[in-house]
Simulated scan of single mutants.
Amino acid sequence: MSETALAVHRAFYDAVETGDADLMATLWVDHPRVSCVHPGAVPLRGTGAVLRSWTVLMANVSYIQFFLTDIDVTTFPLGDDEPTMAVIVCTENILSGEGMSSPDAFAGGKALCTSILVRDPSGGRTAGDWKFWSRHASPIADLGTEDR
C-alpha cells in the first residue's frame, strides 16, 4: 500500500515541476479542512485556497526540480488492516532558477516536508485513490560547512 501512496506523492512533485495545475487538482481531497503550509508562510485552508496557491507558484517559477531524500512512509491503521492514511516525511532538495541574475544560474535550497494522504473518501479503492489532505514544508537553514 505504501507504494501507491508514494506514487501519488511523486505525482505531486511531477505536477509542480511541469506546472500541471490539472494534475495538481486531481491529487487533493476536496474539503474545506484540507491544509497546506508553504515554507515560511501561514497555513492555507480549503482545497480552493490550496490549489490557487500552487497554481500561482507554478505560473511564476520558470524552473524547479525536487530531489527527495530521507523518505519515510507510515501508514495507518498499523497492522493487518487496509491503511486509510499515510504520513510521508522527506527532505526536499530544491533546484530552481528563480531570482538568479543569469538565465544559466541556479539556486538550491532544502525543506523538510510532511504530507498526509488519505484514501479518497468519495470513491472506490483503486491505486490512485490516495489524495493529499495536508502538506507542511519548512525550510532547512544552511548553517554552512565551515569547521568550528
Results as ranks from 00 to 15, higher is better:
83 P>R: 03
80 D>C: 06
14 D>H: 13
96 S>D: 01
38 H>G: 05
129 D>T: 12
83 P>W: 01
5 A>Q: 09
35 S>H: 01
7 A>H: 10
31 H>G: 03
60 N>I: 00
121 P>L: 02
24 M>L: 14
120 D>K: 00
66 F>R: 08
76 F>R: 14
109 G>M: 06
112 L>D: 10
14 D>R: 13
12 F>S: 13
17 E>G: 01
49 A>S: 07
84 T>L: 09
40 G>N: 00
17 E>R: 04
45 R>L: 12
56 V>S: 08
10 R>I: 13
81 D>L: 12
37 V>R: 08
94 I>G: 03
113 C>R: 11
116 I>D: 06
107 A>H: 06
107 A>Y: 00
123 G>C: 05
34 V>P: 09
9 H>V: 11
131 K>C: 08
53 S>H: 08
14 D>C: 09
103 P>F: 01
117 L>T: 06
123 G>K: 10
118 V>H: 08
38 H>Y: 00
84 T>A: 12
34 V>H: 09
10 R>T: 15
48 G>W: 07
44 L>A: 03
44 L>F: 03
126 T>F: 14
75 T>W: 07
11 A>P: 10
100 M>V: 01
90 C>H: 14
95 L>T: 14
128 G>C: 07
89 V>E: 15
40 G>Q: 00
131 K>V: 13
32 P>S: 12
67 F>M: 15
75 T>I: 07
117 L>R: 07
71 I>E: 12
5 A>F: 05
84 T>M: 09
131 K>I: 02
103 P>K: 04
53 S>W: 04
19 G>H: 08
28 W>H: 05
18 T>G: 13
29 V>A: 03
31 H>L: 01
117 L>N: 05
20 D>R: 04
86 A>P: 05
26 T>A: 09
72 D>V: 15
94 I>V: 07
129 D>Y: 05
123 G>P: 00
57 L>E: 13
16 V>W: 11
74 T>H: 14
9 H>C: 13
40 G>E: 04
31 H>W: 00
123 G>N: 03
69 T>L: 11
59 A>N: 08
